[in-house]
């Protein structure tokens, strides 16, 4: 089986963690060709060539691919599709924008958020906000799927494989990029951080989130938030962990003032170790926590920061 893996490339740089995890899923299916697309993607291509499991890297460079707008990127992938049985990508917002479009161009169903690969046609994926796991078998000739990266370990490294350049179809001109407003932060990326410290509605205000930040900075951790905290305006949306936000699976997840709504649990329950700090001993978060502490977070979190 021949697999085309769309690498996550942002601003010309390979996003190693997401791509390496999707590679592990791709390598289960066959020989993997990695596609790096962007206004500049050569450096990303060189990096992808050393990812264990890559047999070839394709570099597609064109101004129209600069911000990975769906129309042009999907058109590129569809133009390459003939040679592959599977077309995969890590389930980032970019890939979720692009791959369903690719699938429709190929007249196949997309398989979103794959959490396990059973065989070449059969995949597991969460449905109903993670309240159920479905095993689906595709009857389509080509399989187009996004990979939920938390379900897979990152692939290692290898001696670099061959890198080739591919032709880019002309721009569709359907959409234009205007601007990116990316949150600048010295903290690690939420989806790849080893430790995540999250705050919930229990924080009570945007200002109070500083104690979450202080603990995170002490641990070199990323900061997350529950949807309740985001909806209340205490935290920006890109911090949101949950079914409608980001799905994370760090080594350690510290939930502070989070009750544990189903939609939040769906985004973090695959974390290796979960710590919950909440003053309500009945909070559902304690049912899935490895270590629970019933305490006022305004006392416990600063104390934890000091003692670690």
């Amino acid at each position: 089986m021949a697999v085309l893996l769309l690498a996550e490339v942002t601003g010309g740089e390979l996003q190693l963690d997401a791509t390496a995890k999707a590679m592990t899923a791709a390598a289960k299916l066959g020989e993997v060709t990695v596609l790096c697309a962007g206004a500049s993607a050569a450096a990303a291509g060189e990096a992808a060539a050393t990812l264990a499991g890559a047999s070839k890297v394709l570099v597609a460079e064109d101004a129209s691919l600069g911000h990975r707008l769906a129309e042009d990127t999907a058109q590129l992938i569809a133009s390459l599709a003939e040679s592959y049985d599977h077309i995969l990508a890590p389930a980032t917002t970019d890939a979720k924008n692009i791959l369903p479009r690719v699938a429709a161009l190929l007249d196949v169903m997309v398989i979103s958020d794959v959490s396990a690969v059973i065989d070449a046609d059969t995949f597991e994926r969460p449905v109903y906000a993670g309240n159920a796991v479905q095993t689906v078998k595709s009857g389509d000739a080509k399989k187009v799927a996004t990979i939920r990266t938390t379900g897979f370990e990152a692939a290692g490294t290898q001696a670099a494989c061959a890198v080739e350049t591919v032709a880019v179809p002309g721009a569709t001109g359907l959409s234009d990029w205007v601007e990116d407003r990316l949150a600048a932060s010295d903290r690690p990326d939420l989806t790849s951080a080893k430790i995540v410290v999250s705050g919930g509605r229990g924080l009570g205000s945007e200002e109070s989130f500083a104690i979450i930040g202080a603990l995170a900075d002490k641990l070199g951790a990323a900061v997350g938030a529950s949807r309740a905290a985001v909806d209340s305006g205490y935290a920006p949306n890109d911090w949101q962990v949950g079914q409608t936000g980001k799905v994370v699976a760090p080594e350690l997840y510290i939930a502070c003032g989070i009750s544990g709504a189903i939609q939040h649990l769906a985004g973090m329950k695959d974390s290796k170790v979960i710590v919950a700090i909440n003053k309500d001993e009945e909070a559902p978060i304690f049912q899935i926590a490895d270590y629970g502490l019933v305490a006022d977070l305004f006392e416990a979190v600063p104390a934890l920061t000091e003692k670690l």
């Binding site: 196949v108 169903m109 398989i111 059969t122 969460p126 449905v127 993670g130 309240n131 159920a132 796991v133 479905q134 095993t135 689906v136 078998k137 595709s138 009857g139 389509d140 329950k269 979960i274 304690f286 049912q287 899935i288 926590a289 490895d290 270590y291 629970g292 502490l293 019933v294």
Partner: peptide, 20 residues
Amino acid sequence: PRLTVVKTAEPAARAAGEMV
């Protein structure tokens, strides 16, 4: 449908932890 649902299962439960 292009995808056949082979089965639908409950997600794996986490083992109960401890309170400190």
